[in-house]
Design a protein around this nucleic acid. Sequence first.
RNA 1: GCGGGUGUAGCUCAAUGGUAGAGCGGUAGCCUUCCAAGCUACUUACGAGGGUUCGAUUCCCUUCACCCGCUCCA
Length: 563
Amino acid sequence: MADKNPAKNTAEKEQNVLMEKIVALCKRRGFIFQSSEIYGGLNGFWDYGPLGAELKRNVKNAWWRDVVMMRDDVVGLDSSIIMHPKVWEASGHVGGFKDPMCSCKFCKKLYRADTIWELLTASEWAADLLKLYAPPGGGPATGADLKKWALARGKRLAPNLALVRNPDVTLSWMAEAAQAGGGQIRFTDAKEWISYLSTEQRAAGPLVTPCPACGGDLTEPRPFNLMFKTHYGALEDEASLTYLRPETAQGIFVQFLNVLNTTRVKVPFGIAQIGKAFRNEINPRNFTFRSREFEQMELEFFIKPGTDAQWHEYWVKERMKWYESIGLPASKLKPYIYKKEELAHYASACVDVYFDFPFGSQELEGIAARGNFDLSQHQKFSGKSMEYFDDETKERYIPHVVEPSAGVDRIALALLCNAYYEEWAPTSESAGAAPIPAEHGKQPPQGFESRVVMRFAPRIAPVKVAVFPLLKNKPPLVEKAKEVFNLLRGQFVSFYDEAGAIGRRYRRQDEAGTPFCVTIDFDTIGEKGPELKDTVTLRDRDTLKQERVAIKELPQRIAEAVR
RNA sequence: GCGGGUGUAGCUCAAUGGUAGAGCGGUAGCCUUCCAAGCUACUUACGAGGGUUCGAUUCCCUUCACCCGCUCCA
């Protein structure tokens, strides 16, 4: 393989450095901590600190407000994490949720067992070798042909294939097997033929499946069960085995009839749920992006069969708009439209919402048109009819469903990555100047100092407003500041700080992403006369501009900005 | 799961086979101080478990976590 483009390497390195800075800030400021850190941490699990908890709650509240509160056609649900084990048989998770994996004993590559044959036929060496399975003369090639291939093309293309590693041994056991079978081996198909040529010694075990990359021996498929097993009841026997839910969606399908019967909803309508889900990811990576315990926001929107395409399109648009409403810019959001062959057999369409993280473009949400697969499965497994009677058309049917399913933790991470910004802010000697964007690898000019600011949309910022007395050793200022703080804290997540120099307190709030800081000074307590009495400075996080505002106007000013 | 790297204070980084030091931060105090100001004091660390050794943060082994690459992502 040729060297990677050095420019790309540099860019990648910068992105890695950026991600490291974001992770460091998350820990330093109390957004995200490693789970069980004092015991050395636990791979794939993360805790949210005081600021992270607020951020995450804001994400969930924004979603609940826009998807449930503000709509006539969606109701909420909060189902249990542990459900009847049959739920997971019906959903297909028990059967299909464990992907058997094989790895190559030679080059160590890892494959999903059910994709290997596909990869093989696409690989250069197997495609080349397969020409000998059905040569122009017909029938599999002779041992001499195979040996010739092994010594020439095979050596280059598939160095670890048994036929190439040790052609004489491989071909001789095949010849023996042929003799024992009466002259010729009857291969059921090309797949089996390849497996024979991949097996150096038959006595050592079953036929070998070769590695698509190098031809080496793959291990037997090992099941990876991606669901967390647990037991209900105090006895840990087979009968009490169940799972922590790998998605919240099934709780919705399972309670479909109860919701239908208690809320007088009519198709089309949706059931929304926010909650934790658990998956034994093979390889957690990229900070909180792929965690083993995570939180989902899922909507199952039930529709009349045949209206799938239009509702799917509707929800894709709605959801893209929503991401912009919480401050993720359209330029970093991309829809990924599934190709026909990538869809599950029951799905008619699926679009993922991708976000440009520093570690690449990754999925935040999937919006799938799943037909009536889930309700049909539960009807089949439970024996309960999931049919809906449409009063208007007098039709009876199992509703189809469009499922927008979003990851709270991924969205929170996207917000953190998007908010992180380094710039050069004026120091006291050039106070009043506007901040300027930092230039990579350079020092700020005279009168400026670099600052890190989390530019969250005010709507999702963890803390909305911080209140400071200019000096803490002047009781009238402190008293007044506490009064203002108490005025605001009931309406907004607010923070009171009197420690250290005022500039330091501003910078602390910049790293927390607090959009507003209110400072009580000597004018507030009337030292400069009655016209400035009971006014404060309202400082804007992004522009650093200060404005003189009457205390009684503060709640409205802030409310308008954080709505 | 494989390969490579890393692990010393909250952060960044030192030193050392004889149990560790700085800068920044944090806390407290002084200061009529609006963008990480100044002065003073205080605070905190060798990821975990074994082994070698009189003695291990340092050498060896194991393990855990994090980062990078491969792979995977129903």
